[in-house]
Design a protein around this nucleic acid. Structure first.
Length: 592
DNA sequence: CTAGGGTTAG
């Protein structure tokens, strides 16, 4: 298999290197000088006196600076504010900013830009705009970063009209969009899944007199394409970029490696690793974490462990993300004891565990149906002072639901809101599904109304769940109405929705209608899958229409699908009963 | 000293 070769190759390289052998052959260069850049980065960091290592240090330094007479230059204040903002302590930065003028320290354009950015990240666009207004009053000229920051804030909240307004205002002021402005716009397109629009903007950028596409904008699109597994398109952009003389960097390679790994193309990943090293771009902790994570997701935890070994030998310490991925890898295999071992290792190494780590463990136990263990972990994280987030609650709620403990799930739903964690669409989806599957349709409908009131963007997952709930409750007519009303709501039913509806129709004895739906699927651009066929075949069998079931088995086999365990079981069950329909015997010859 | 890019969980 491919992956074995590539990883074994990598290991051989490590051994060569640790013997102090020079790496000459291109395929053996992989990882050779990896420790060098990280060392220089560390020394740079500790040597620079303007940098502070943590927020507390920054806060006290800033406060003492506010009291100095005469106060230090504004640049010094900006440096610290900027670092606090980089550490994502936006509220802290804003609080410090508020003390500046009363202390006789006057902000400049840089200060204001930093603060507007903080408000944007806190989703407090109103305050951001008011600082912007103050900017004008004091006679400062807003610049491209100011406008770009405000625009980003609106885009982040999907307030496109307001973002466009800022953009026009920027142009009116004679500020032309630069690489960062375009980058912000392009990123916004990509986040919404609109790669086409992103590429159009890239083309527009090529025509601009004020800026040209750079490695960052290419990276944004390449990464987005890779995330959508459009790796070929990503490579085309990659070639385009290189041919334009724009050099790829570590981020370009990490995105591409992620893309190919997700497709299981380990040989290609190894080729990319060697290629980057040949360009003096060395894999970093992110590169290795991507490898570890994708290997784990494919169930190859042993290989992932060897990658961790490899990075340690290269002098790159696995970080919290690497370990979390590894933990999840064990969880996916149901090896909870090994996942716990990684967890303990993290603690013994002195690196702290985070909400991610706990969420992974909780999710792992839930998947293994060990809800009490999941609950124990949940308790433990709270005891450690870590605040469970929406994902924590949702994972545990899902565990309760799947275990039939719907009351516990409901309690948790109330608790999370009492603790200030806002349920999102996925939280609702989990609870809705739990209610539907546990015969609590009335409560499910109440929850659905609540979702509508909260103006949550109801998606096909939610509707499919509700349709299924209606079917389970025997309200086939209602389910059908909802199903056929979806297009009008601007929601497109997918294969799963169809399968649910077909199952419901069959359950209600409406097999002809179910078959009609099956036939329509192809034309609607949503071709039936193996599950669709198995569902309808079981439907016909259960409705004593064995002959039509046999016909559909032929269709299914022609399409390359086969009977699943549930269908096989049903056939065996029917055959074992006294009244054997002669047509049923045909199944014995069919490749079930 | 300010604005855009890559890794983990439901």
């Amino acid at each position: 298999m491919h992956h074995k070769i590539s990883l074994n190759v990598a290991q051989t390289q490590i051994r060569r290197r640790s013997r102090g052998m020079p790496c000459l052959h291109s395929t053996l260069v992989f990882f050779s000088h990896a420790s060098k850049p990280s060392e220089s980065r560390n020394t740079q960091f500790s040597r620079d006196p303007s940098k502070v290592s943590n927020v507390d240090e920054a806060l006290s330094l800033f406060n003492s600076m506010l009291r100095m007479r005469p106060p230090p230059f504004i640049v010094r204040f900006n440096q610290i504010l900027g670092q606090i903002a980089k550490l994502k302590h936006y509220s802290a930065a804003i609080n410090l900013y508020k003390q500046m003028i009363p202390s006789g320290v006057f902000p400049d354009a840089y200060t204001v830009n930093i603060i507007i950015n903080c408000f944007c990240h806190l989703n407090q666009m109103g305050f951001g705009l008011s600082v912007f207004g103050k900017f004008f009053k004091c006679g400062y000229e807003p610049d491209v970063p100011t406008f770009t920051t405000l625009m980003k804030g609106f885009l982040l909240k999907n307030r496109v009209a307001e973002a466009a307004e800022i953009f026009s205002k920027m142009m009116e002021q004679g500020c032309m969009p630069n690489e960062v402005t375009f980058g912000t716009l392009i990123k916004s397109c990509c986040v919404k899944g609109n790669n086409r629009a992103a590429i159009q903007l890239l083309r527009k950028m090529e025509q601009s007199e004020h800026c040209k596409p750079n490695v960052v904008v290419y990276n944004i699109i390449i990464d987005s394409l890779c995330k959508d597994t459009l790796v070929r398109d990503a490579f085309n952009l990659f070639s385009e970029m290189i041919s334009k003389g724009i050099a790829a960097d570590i981020i370009t390679y990490n995105s591409l490696i992620h893309g190919v790994c997700k497709l299981g193309q380990w040989t290609e990943a190894t080729r990319l690793l060697n290629e980057m090293v040949s360009k003096n771009i060395f894999p970093n902790v992110l590169t290795f974490s991507i490898l570890v994570d994708t290997l784990c997701k494919e169930g190859m935890v042993v290989k992932a462990e060897s990658v961790v070994e490899m990075m340690i030998q290269r002098g790159i310490e696995p970080d919290i993300v690497t370990h979390n991925s590894l933990m999840d890898g064990y969880c996916l295999r149901g090896e909870m004891d090994k996942a716990e071992k990684v967890f303990d290792l993290m603690i013994s190494k002195g690196s702290s565990v985070d909400v991610y780590s706990y969420n992974i463990l909780i999710n792992g136990y839930c998947r293994c149906k060990q809800i009490d263990e999941a609950n124990r972990v949940f308790q433990e994280m709270s005891d450690k002072g870590l605040v469970p987030d929406t994902i924590t609650y949702t994972a545990l709620m899902d565990g309760f639901c799947k275990d039939g403990r719907i009351q516990d799930a409901k309690k948790l739903f109330n608790k999370m809101q009492a603790c200030g964690q806002l349920p999102n669409i996925q939280t609702y989806a989990v609870l809705l599904d739990g209610l539907c599957k546990n015969q609590q349709l009335t409560t499910a409908l109440v929850l659905f109304r609540e979702m509508e009131c909260r103006k949550l963007n109801l998606n096909i997952v939610i509707y499919s769940t509700l349709i299924e709930g209606l079917c389970i409750a025997g309200k086939i007519e209602c389910a059908r109405d909802l199903f056929f009303g979806l297009s009008a709501k601007g929601v497109q039913p997918n294969v799963r929705t169809h399968n649910i509806m077909i199952n419901g129709l069959c359950k209600g004895g409406l097999t002809s209608e179910a078959e009609k739906l099956l036939l329509e699927m192809q034309d609607k651009g949503c071709p039936p899958d193996g599950c669709t066929y198995n569902t309808i075949i079981r439907g016909f069998l259960n409705n004593n229409e064995t002959y039509r079931a046999v016909e559909l088995v032929r269709d299914m086999v022609d399409r390359g699908f086969s009977a699943d365990a549930s269908t096989t079981e049903l056939v065996v069950d029917l055959l074992s009963k006294d009244k054997v329909d002669p047509a049923l015997l045909a199944f014995i010859e069919e490749p079930l």
